[in-house]
């Protein structure tokens, strides 16, 4: 919706953008510059300075300490993301193309699960995992994220499939395709962009999640990266270069996903809001 901007207003806009850029970049600057400092150089007084002798010491220590947790996060995030995307796709198909009585009401019931504070299910959930012997394991976290991911993935796919004309499905069923075939043969092949959006969204959310991670896994060797990062600060003297390097390591996978697939990321954000 570009309106023609005059020269002065253009300059004003740039000044505003630059001020905001400083605000958005500030934490990145502190994180990056601190993480490349050797331990001797990390002090409060020089916090805003660039490293004099850049060093990878912080990253090495952080990687050594967090490497098992990084692995845990991948073991957790990848299956949970894929499974919940699959479920969301099938559900989205059913709710958009196979509407039945009360399907909207039932969908709303499912959707409510996306907004609840997870604290309100936390205690029974922990007890459930304790009884089933899954407590403290990565599979427990995967189950958790898959189930509580159903509402959002269903919503995203439902919105996505609703853009696809019903005639496509109807034409297929006239040709004798059953429901399953019309899903796998017609809808699934054109769902790739939808999957990308949902996978990015779920990957970021599950990777970054903290409450379930910290309450369902208490054994540090099983904990995902977010919890390990907080614990890094909890022990003895805080080595800020290690801490900041650790923060970068924890953020790296989602940042990479974001940089490569940023366009889809924006779309995912929008699909995540209930209705535009």
């Amino acid at each position: 919706m570009a309106e023609k901007a005059s020269k002065t207003s253009t300059i004003v806009y740039y000044i505003i953008l630059i001020i905001f850029t400083i605000f958005y970049i500030l934490p990145f600057y502190v994180t990056l510059s601190t993480s490349f400092k050797p331990f001797e150089e990390v002090s409060i007084a020089t916090m805003w300075n660039l490293p004099k002798k850049p060093s990878l010491q912080g990253f090495k220590t952080a990687y050594r300490k967090l490497q098992p947790n990084l692995k845990n996060s991948f073991y957790l995030t990848i299956p949970a993301t894929l499974i919940s995307a699959m479920i969301g796709s099938i559900n989205g198909f059913a709710l958009s193309k196979l509407k039945f009585r009360y399907s909207n009401f039932l969908f709303a019931l499912i959707l409510f699960g996306m907004f609840i504070p997870y604290q309100s299910v936390l205690f029974p959930l922990i007890q459930f995992f304790q009884k089933t012997g899954l407590y403290g394991t990565i599979p427990a976290l995967i189950i958790t994220h898959v189930i509580y991911g159903i509402p959002i993935t269903t919503l995203m796919f439902k919105n996505y499939y609703e853009e696809i004309p019903d005639e496509l499905i109807e034409a297929a069923s006239v040709d004798g395709a059953n429901v399953w075939q019309s899903y796998t043969k017609i809808l699934l092949p054109i769902s790739i962009p939808g999957f990308v959006v949902v996978i990015i969204w779920q990957f970021t959310n599950i990777w970054n999640e903290f409450l379930f991670a910290v309450t369902i896994t208490s054994d540090p060797t099983k904990q995902p990266i977010t919890v390990a990062l907080v614990n890094l600060a909890g022990s003895q003297v805080v080595q800020w270069n290690v801490q900041m390097a650790g923060a970068l390591l924890a953020a790296l996978p989602t940042l990479i996903v974001y940089i490569i697939l940023g366009r889809y990321f924006v779309r995912g954000l929008l699909a995540g809001s209930v209705k535009g």
Partner: peptide, 20 residues
């Protein structure tokens, strides 16, 4: 750039801003 922080965990954000 303005959207960047979205990709990051609150835990990371909290750690960094807590220091700042």
């Amino acid at each position: 750039l303005f959207l960047f922080p979205m990709a990051i965990s609150y835990v990371v954000t909290g750690t960094v801003w807590g220091w700042i």
